[in-house]
Nucleic acid binder design. Structure first.
Length: 724
DNA sequence: CGCCGCAGGCTTTTT
DNA sequence: GCCTGCGGCG
């Protein structure tokens, strides 16, 4: 039975209802964690459609991830029925990409332009740096990529950037310009370019802007705190004077500042748009009282918040557990043991999530889960369309659609190996550059032949012939047949089939999966109407939606992920590991108040993922990159009021937090010293006694020296003195 | 040209 | 500790 909208509205709380049924005008919804944000967005769409009688076709709903977009779409469809289908819901990139396809020539793009992903972009940048002789140690390709992307996110072109008298900056701007020339001539655009180009198109093509402004009466933007400068400008220009903007976000969950997101946009919104009505969603439906109180206490340390106080009707619930491990092994063992007993006590594996600051921390947890045969899933890592073999196959397909795509050409010209080496390629590149030609055109030029040795010439000709044959054979074939041709005729499949490498089997499987993916791919109506072939559409899909991570989502398994990727999710039991200063907050953020505040918001995100149980762990010593580190517990731990906390293994009170020991024979402290005590050594200086091993004469002391780091010393040999 | 071995590097991530 | 990328050698 389909619920009527009236019923649905009755089920909302007053704040939610206020947002959903707000009269015409701009709305800012400040939605706290677990306050029913998506629900409000979806109901707003239904309300506009059914009560305000707005045709769903005139509503644009924008999100950041494909997952969020498809969830919004399907929930809207279930509320609206068939009408929901005409709603335009997508990511910023998806929407801008669609506009560019629709008006490619007005955007200065070839009809068959392709999208470069991060990996492709980095390759192009390396190429450009080499060409300019700028592949210095001073400037890494990653730095350059960061600079270019950050500039584009800010809406800046090379000519609008100021050198500011800095040589390094001069070099970066020059590289940006050279990179632009290269991508333009190849007919490819990177992710940041999709947004910037669309934005520029709206600004320079009044008739196109007018077209979209006439169409869209309502813009709904999710995760508004994540918008960067260009995205904000895009919303502004598209809204114009006529459309109403419904912006939903949470400044306390802004965790993407490092990639250009501007929390300030949330404040700017109330300034730049007239008469914005602000609604706060402060009732949390997710977490117990204790968990929420902890989250509130932590985030309260941040200044410059828009201010919100989350509350809940729920009971206080269990205390928050804090576990102090001796080292990371100890920590992992504890976490997995606790998960195991919760499973034995009837929790399903999928009800537990282990969250961490950086991916490297998942390994030990994984090992322990495997050892105890508990199923798990790690989010993140390489996604389907990002795998090397898949990208190789896609590069062949890209060359079919656009022979000028140099990035694709470079990728597969010698993959699998066919005797076209660096020397040959260098000659080819030089030729291409001096004649202003794309690589594939230069490769077929008569004038090049003279410069190449016979063998190289033949190999190159064979490659060109291969692409030509492929193109001819795929005429009139359907997508999956073309994909199959590409991986067989190119020799890619054979290459992996005959490879002894352990990974080659899974590579073959992936290639086969690519064919199945092509088989089941349905070209969206709007793509074909924009004049895209099935192949172009498929390639765009591969670039814009790189596919899911490893395991199947439906499997009942423990969830492992970073706190960044956990935002928006919730779990009955949450474990946050690696809570040490230097790890979380990260050492790179600790000294900068702005960045520290973002780390704290990340902690807030982590805490608020938990519904019933929250377990926080840290280790006194941890191997990071093969090096032993002794870090104090995260400052965020001490920001949680002690009355909410139960320490699982109470730590000794010691002068310096990071000296806290345990697990050794505490009754009989090592010789004359006490753990946690400050000691002086003639050559190493002052340090803290962290741990002791062995007994009697062979007692060894682990002392963490302030200047020279941890050292293991014999207790009865080392000349140690107590320090007051 | 291609393979192998070693050195260096390394938050977070979507599109 | 693990992966990538580069350089040297066969």
């Amino acid at each position: 039975m389909r619920m009527t909208l009236a019923d649905a509205l009755m089920n909302l709380n007053p704040a939610q209802r206020e947002a959903v049924t707000a009269p015409p005008g701009h709305i800012l919804v400040l939605a706290g964690a677990g306050s029913g944000k998506t629900r409000v967005l979806v109901h707003r769409i239904a309300y506009l459609s059914e009560i305000e009688r707005v045709d769903p076709w005139r509503i644009l709903a924008v999100t950041f991830t494909n997952k969020a977009a498809s969830e919004m779409r399907s929930r809207a469809e279930s509320l609206l029925g068939g009408d929901g289908r005409s709603l335009w819901a997508g990511t910023f990139h998806g929407i801008c990409h669609r506009m560019l396809r629709q008006h490619a020539s007005h955007a200065g793009l070839p009809l068959n332009f392709q999208v470069l992903d991060q990996d492709d972009q980095l390759r192009v940048i390396k190429r450009v740096m080499k060409d300019l002789g700028l592949s210095d140690e001073e400037l890494s390709a990653r730095d350059v990529a960061f600079f270019i992307n950050a500039s584009k996110d800010e809406g800046k072109r090379p000519e609008t950037l100021d050198v500011e008298g800095q040589p390094r900056r001069r070099a970066l701007i020059d590289l940006y310009a050279a990179y632009e020339r290269q991508t333009r001539s190849s007919g490819v655009i990177d992710f940041a370019e999709i947004l910037l180009r669309a934005q520029e198109m709206l600004l320079t093509q009044p008739q196109i802007l007018a077209h979209y402004q006439r169409r869209f009466a309502h813009l709904l933007v999710d995760e508004f705190q994540d918008t960067n400068t260009v995205q904000y400008a895009f919303v502004r220009v598209l809204a114009g004077e006529q459309a109403q903007v419904f912006a939903v976000g949470d400044d306390d969950q802004s965790i993407y500042g490092w990639r250009g997101a501007k929390v300030e946009n949330v404040q700017s919104f109330t300034r730049d748009f007239p008469n914005v009505r602000t609604v706060r969603l402060e009732q949390n439906y997710r977490s117990t009282g204790n968990i929420l109180a902890a989250a509130n206490a932590v985030i309260a340390r941040n200044t410059d918040r828009l201010g919100k106080n989350l509350w809940t009707d729920d009971k206080a619930g269990a205390a928050i557990e804090i576990f102090a491990g001796y080292n990371e092994v100890d920590e992992a063992r504890f976490v997995v043991e606790r998960i195991k007993s919760s499973i034995e006590a009837d929790r399903r594996p999928s009800e537990s999530a282990v969250l961490y600051r950086s991916n490297a921390l998942s390994r030990l947890i994984e090992e322990n889960l495997i050892a105890r045969q508990i199923p798990y899933r790690v989010y993140g890592g390489l996604r389907f369309f990002e795998r090397a073999e898949i990208k190789d196959a896609l590069a062949y397909l890209r060359l079919l659609g656009n022979p000028n795509d140099d990035a694709a050409f470079e990728r597969v010209v010698n993959t699998p190996p066919r005797g076209i080496g660096e020397r040959t390629l260098e000659t080819l590149r030089k030729h291409a550059r001096s004649h202003g030609l794309p690589l594939s055109q230069a490769a077929s030029a008569q004038s090049l032949a003279a410069e190449l040795a016979g063998r190289a010439r033949n190999a190159l000709a064979a490659f060109l012939a291969l692409i030509e044959t492929l193109r001819a054979d795929s005429k009139g074939q359907d997508l999956s047949a073309v994909a199959l041709l590409a991986i067989t005729q190119s020799g890619l499949r054979e290459f992996y089939a005959s490879s002894a490498d352990a990974k080659s089997e899974s590579r073959m499987e992936n290639l086969d999966q690519l064919v199945s993916a092509a088989e089941s791919y349905i070209c969206p109506e709007e793509d074909s109407s924009a004049g895209m072939s099935d192949l172009d559409s498929f390639l765009a899909h591969a670039a814009l939606e790189a596919g899911d991570g490893e395991a199947e989502a439906w499997e009942d398994c423990v969830q492992l992920m970073t706190m960044h990727s956990a935002r928006g999710l919730e779990f009955p039991c949450v474990y946050i590991i690696g809570l040490e200063d230097g790890l979380f907050p990260s050492a790179r953020s600790i000294d900068e108040p702005g960045r520290l505040a973002e780390e704290r918001r990340l902690m807030y995100v982590g805490i608020t993922r938990a519904r019933q149980e929250l377990v926080l762990t840290h280790a006194e010593s941890r191997r990071i990159h093969g090096q032993e580190h002794f870090s104090p517990p995260s400052r965020f731990l001490s920001e949680i009021p002690t009355e909410l906390v139960r320490e699982i293994r109470p730590r000794l009170r010691v002068s310096k937090a990071f000296a806290a020991p345990h697990r050794m024979t505490l009754e009989e402290p090592a010789s004359r010293f006490k753990l946690g005590q400050r000691l002086a050594h003639p050559s190493f200086g002052v340090g803290v006694l962290v741990s002791a091993m062995g007994a009697g004469e062979r007692t060894q002391l682990l002392i963490n020296f302030e200047k020279s780091g941890p050292k293991l010393l014999m207790a009865n040999v080392a000349k140690l003195e107590e320090v007051a």
